[in-house]
Design a protein around this nucleic acid. Structure first.
Length: 426
RNA sequence: GUGAGCGUAGCUCAGCUGGUGGUAGCACCGGGUUGUGGCCUCGGCGGUCGUGGGUUCAAGUCCCAUCGCUCACCCCA
């Protein structure tokens, strides 16, 4: 049996890479328009970083991290998400002195040891965005509007759901009210909710059981428990979203899986991906920088799942993008091949995408190759052409061809061929 | 971690109540014009039927185990 990739680890084949590049380029372009700068951070970090930020009792930390001992015995972890590393880098490099607010994004693989299913892998890729240093609710809106715009520009539909989780001042009172509510009817809840009511009470609210949901209609809502400042913040977020005419819905039952979130949280949700509806999600994390030993700096961020975006585009049949060759050099005979090889390099240096055959295949075959590689033109170069000093340039889509002169010097050939091709650029 | 479904060619799949693995489609390679691709046509390559046991005269087909994949739960991008 040959060696196969690890469970949950996938090859991204050339057919699909064009789509990945399209998404990433579109997103980067938008991020730059919004004043964001890229930061590249390591894939490995000290385990402690994730334990302290994501939260000790979260599923990610408890059972999903790729954690192991380094050769000198320290515990290191392959990052399960991007925010923690960016915050660490922000603090470690004193980025707060570069300006009051920093807008950063990073792109790359994340690792979680989960059971793979549709839209969920053990190595997956995120584009992750962070704003550090602003308390303004308008920043929340700006960030959501930017995420929204990314989807718009890559041509995807999703709905935006928002919520507020409150802050260290108001969340505990809500949590207490909820716990009391759950205790009163603990025996009427499903097994999962009974478990969740002690481990992670907020989670019960998005239970899928109808029986449970019927009872949660009267459950305390986080929105009602927000303190004055948090309530005002949330109101302003909604107002500015309205102002920008970004469509959204408030979902008071939305919960996030990472402990560091405060105040505004949001998800971009699609119904087209089976059980994995979130294609982007994020929120505020006002205490996080301080908690990691940095200055008292608020933050907000979100991540988008590349695999899920790619999957949606494929489903929408916006699939494979084939690389296009400007020219395929068809050569006949050894002499023409050698001459052609020099010409090939000259043309490439001149910026054209050019290929040729080195296997001595028949002309028919070489044209077949040209076709398969989506060449726009084919230049036919044989002994006759070398003697006559002119060669047919064939337009592969129309089939028509005309002779181009072969100047005495190779440089001039290349220039003539290039200008011939360029002039027919449509 | 739990549950369900599925493993036959590189890919998509036929293969009935067990009776010799398909001229199958796509892809790949080569012919059909001795210097012109796509379409057509002909031919070729390609499989320890996931693996290991068992039942049987006989197993791709039935049984058990195991591995893998997929989807769902949990949870999450």
């Amino acid at each position: 049996m040959s060696i196969k990739a690890l469970k949950g680890f996938k090859d991204i084949l050339p057919d699909e890479v064009g789509l990945w590049q399209f998404i990433e380029q579109t997103a980067r372009n938008i991020f730059h328009r919004y004043g964001f700068e890229e930061i590249k951070v390591p894939i490995l970090e000290k385990t402690e970083l994730f334990v302290r930020t994501i939260g000790e009792s979260t599923d990610i930390v408890e059972k999903e991290m790729y954690t192991f001992s380094d050769r000198n015995g320290s515990s290191i972890t392959m990052r399960p998400e991007g925010t923690a590393s960016v915050i660490r880098a922000y603090i470690e490099n004193g980025l707060h002195v570069r300006g009051a607010t920093q807008r950063l994004y990073t792109v790359g693989p994340m690792f979680r040891h989960e059971r793979p299913q549709k839209g969920r892998l053990r190595q997956f890729h995120q584009m992750s965005v962070e704003v550090l240093g602003s308390n303004s609710p308008v920043i929340d809106t700006e960030v959501m509007a930017m995420a929204w715009q990314v989807l718009q520009e890559i041509g995807l539909q999703a709905s935006l759901e928002i919520n507020s989780l409150g802050c260290a001042a108001c969340r505990p009172s809500f949590r207490q009210a909820l716990e009391e509510f759950l205790q009163e009817r603990i025996l009427n809840l499903c097994d999962d909710c009974q478990r969740r009511s002690t481990t992670n009470p907020l989670r019960v609210l998005d239970c899928k059981s109808e029986h449970c949901q019927a009872q949660y209609g009267s459950a305390p809502s986080i929105i009602d428990h927000l303190c004055g400042a948090c309530s005002e913040h949330f109101t302003e977020v909604r107002q500015t979203l309205n102002l920008l005419e970004v469509p959204y819905a408030v979902n008071a039952k939305m919960v996030r899986g990472l402990d560091y979130y405060t105040r505004t949280t949001f998800e971009l949700i699609t119904t087209e991906l089976g059980a994995q509806g979130a294609i982007g999600a994020g929120g505020r994390y006002d205490g996080l920088v301080r908690q990691l030993g940095g200055p008292e700096v608020p933050g907000i961020g979100f991540a988008m799942g590349m695999e899920r975006l790619v999957m949606l585009l494929r489903q929408a049949d916006r699939g494979e993008t084939h690389p296009v060759l400007d020219l395929f050099l068809v050569t006949l005979g050894e002499k023409a091949h050698d001459k052609g090889f020099s010409l090939l390099q000259m043309l490439r240096a001149g910026g054209l995408r050019v290929m040729m055959d080195h296997e001595g295949r028949s002309m028919k075959n070489q044209l077949k190759q040209a076709d398969k590689q989506n060449a726009r033109f084919a230049l036919i170069l044989g002994e006759n052409e070398l003697l006559k000093r002119e060669a047919p340039l064939k337009d592969m889509s129309s089939g028509g061809q005309e002779l181009v002169e072969l100047a005495p010097a190779l440089e001039d050939w290349a220039a003539v061929i290039k200008s011939n091709i360029m002039s027919r650029e449509k």
